[in-house]
Computed example of a mutant assay.
Amino acid sequence: MTEVMLVWDNPLLFEKLFNEHGIKCQRIVSDSIGTPFIPACKCVVIPTGFANKDYTKILPGIERNTKSFEKFVRDGGNLVVFSPMVPKYNYGWLPMELEYIQQQKVTTICKTNDHEAQCLIEDACAEVEFDGYFSKTDGEVVFSDDAGNPLMVVKELGNGRIIATTIHEFPSGKFLKWINETAKKSKL
């Protein structure tokens, strides 16, 4: 049984991270989203660089599947989205307001509110690298940089949630387990 779907079009180091933590992960191409061929899963992860054509070609398939992503989350799935790695980006395919501006920096992150998703980073007092920030959002800001720019937001929707982050670090094992354990199997 696959627990996590990783949306990408070629092998990634990210896959190994899930396997190291005992979480069954399957990589899928974005063109297969919304088809009957994809099994239900608990979590969908869209890695850093999804909108950058130098890294991948998955963006058109993602942007065509707004309704599939919304249904997946409303039915209890967790959708984790990392940065697009382009100068500016509007996540119009997400059922939330979210806009990104690219700006690579290192900062000591600031907890804006207490939230379970903050386990993304093992040491919340350490400096982290990020590749941009959210210039607009209607999600709950859980991490920001030292200038107050949102770096991680969470939006509860139906029985699931959308977690978006610009933090350019591998997520902790605790976070990977949390996104899997707090979700229900849902069809993408």
Rank of each mutant, 00 (worst) to 15 (best):
T108S: 11
C43Y: 02
V128Q: 11
P95S: 11
E116C: 06
C110S: 09
P150A: 15
G92C: 03
P150V: 10
S68V: 14
E20G: 04
L98Q: 06
M5R: 09
I121N: 00
N65K: 06
P39F: 07
T165I: 07
L151D: 02
A164D: 06
L79M: 13
S186Q: 13
L59D: 05
T66H: 15
V44E: 03
C125S: 14
E169V: 12
L94W: 02
Q102C: 04
F14D: 14
V45K: 05
M96N: 04
A126L: 05
F170H: 13
V80Q: 01
P11I: 13
G76T: 06
T35S: 11
K24W: 01
L188Q: 12
P60A: 05
N52F: 04
I179A: 07
E140F: 01
P11N: 08
M1N: 04
Q104H: 12
K177S: 11
K185M: 09
C125N: 12
P47H: 07
F18G: 06
R64F: 04
V4E: 01
I121C: 06
A117N: 10
S32Q: 06
D31I: 09
N65R: 15
C125F: 12
M5D: 00
G22M: 07
A51P: 12
L79G: 05
E140W: 00
N19C: 13
A124Q: 12
G49Y: 03
K16I: 06
K184L: 15
A126Q: 03
L157G: 04
A164G: 03
